[in-house]
Write a protein that binds this DNA or RNA. Structure first.
Length: 383
DNA sequence: AAACCGTGGCA
DNA sequence: TTGCCAAGGTT
């Protein structure tokens, strides 16, 4: 990590009553800190798993996945030996699937390079895939009480308000890192870092922060300027592009369905899906599906009636999946633009990891197979 | 170094 | 309905 020395010089950090801030935060945490599953023990594997799951993901979402994960992969050695498909299955629905692939890969690295013992050197931890500076600090401080600072979304927001930062946090990362490091209570780094995140998650929230209960309110520049709701400043973004996709549910004459496994890199890497592709301008859904299936799988299908229409939003675009029943006519399916192709029954399909939008298709297939009446287009957000 | 990478909840 | 944001890292 390279510090931007110039910007540190030009943007001076305010004078802060550091000792008092540490003491007030410590006392608040003792009274109001959260009790969370990964705070009950200091096993680095348990802390590590929680830190990866919590990247860009809220505590409430993580907890059930965390419990289930530990029942399947109770220790690092078990995870290292596990099949990647089982790992992805346990991650199904959490999103950012590279986190699961990297966790699995890193477990193997710890076994081979560190004798199965999670490393305690910052450089060794940072060398593991999926662990950056903030996650390394979170793990080392929580598991070993090491004085390593953190800078996650909570801390960025808390510190931005504390100094009334006049630019979006992304434009001031060196200063925010320096502030996190300056404030860090080196006598109690574990509790300090956890307290800072709790403060951001429960009081110093993005909307309607509970400033009247905040232990830092007398020192908080944003509060004293009544600018809590304007800080941190946001970057302006472009509207999300919308893609229209034709998707095939291909049946053979043995009541089996054709699914494919995506390439390991990129969007939804390593997960299974129903094949399909983008509808070209002026193209009908049926023509698109027939064309995509010929191009991607090298087979010919007859496109039948609509099964479901799924709306789904990813981070950088929205999609409409136009899903149609298809009948396999001829040709042996080939893995041309994917890793693997497979015929499965509706009974077997649950064993494979699918992304969210595809699980909605599977639900619709179940209803179809059970002879339930097809309803109006089902919207993702209504489910 | 800007772009990419999921999903759920909320207003 | 749409946009925003969340315990960020990788390329």
């Amino acid at each position: 990590m390279k510090e931007n020395a110039r910007s540190i010089e030009t943007v001076a950090l305010p004078e802060l009553p550091v000792t008092q801030l540490r003491r007030d935060l410590r006392q608040w945490y003792a009274e109001s800190g959260r009790r969370l599953p990964w705070r009950e023990r200091d096993d680095p594997y348990l802390i590590w798993v929680s830190e990866i799951m919590l990247q860009q993901t809220q505590v409430k979402t993580v907890i059930p996945y965390y419990q289930n994960w530990l029942s399947r992969f109770p220790d690092l050695a078990t995870l290292a030996k596990a099949d990647l498909q089982d790992v992805l299955k346990a991650w199904q629905g959490l999103g950012y699937y590279a986190r699961a692939r990297n966790l699995h890969k890193a477990a193997g690295a710890v076994v081979r390079q560190h004798g199965g013992i999670f490393p305690q050197q910052l450089d060794d931890v940072l060398a593991l895939p999926g662990i950056g500076r903030s996650t390394a600090g979170g793990i080392l401080s929580a598991a070993f009480n090491q004085p390593v600072s953190i800078l996650d979304g909570n801390v960025k927001r808390v510190l931005s308000r504390l100094i009334a930062l006049s630019v979006p946090p992304a434009k001031a990362l060196p200063q925010l890192w320096q502030l996190s490091d300056t404030l860090l209570d080196r006598e109690n780094p574990r509790d300090f870092n956890q307290a800072l995140m709790d403060l951001g998650a429960t009081l110093c929230t993005p909307k309607n922060p509970g400033c009247l209960l905040c232990p830092w309110r007398t020192s908080c520049k944003a509060y004293n300027l009544e600018k809590q709701s304007e800080i941190p400043m946001r970057e302006t973004r472009f509207p999300l592009p919308h893609k229209h996709i034709g998707v095939a549910v291909i049946w053979n004459d043995r009541q089996q369905l054709l699914i494919d496994r995506r390439l390991d890199s990129g969007l939804l890497g390593g997960l299974w899906e129903f094949p399909g592709g983008k509808i070209e301008p002026g193209e009908t859904i049926e023509a698109c599906i027939a064309r995509e299936i010929q191009e991607e799988l090298g087979i010919e299908v007859e496109v039948g009636e609509r099964l479901i229409t799924v709306e789904h939003a990813y981070t950088h675009f929205r999609v409409t999946l136009n899903v149609h029943h298809c009948r396999h006519l001829h040709g042996e399916p080939q893995a041309i633009e994917c890793q693997e192709v497979r015929w499965v029954t509706l009974e077997e399909i649950d064993r494979f990891p699918f992304p969210k939008a595809n699980t909605l298709i599977i639900e619709a297939l179940r209803e179809f197979a059970n002879g339930e009446p097809t309803s109006a287009p089902i919207r993702n957000e209504l489910r």
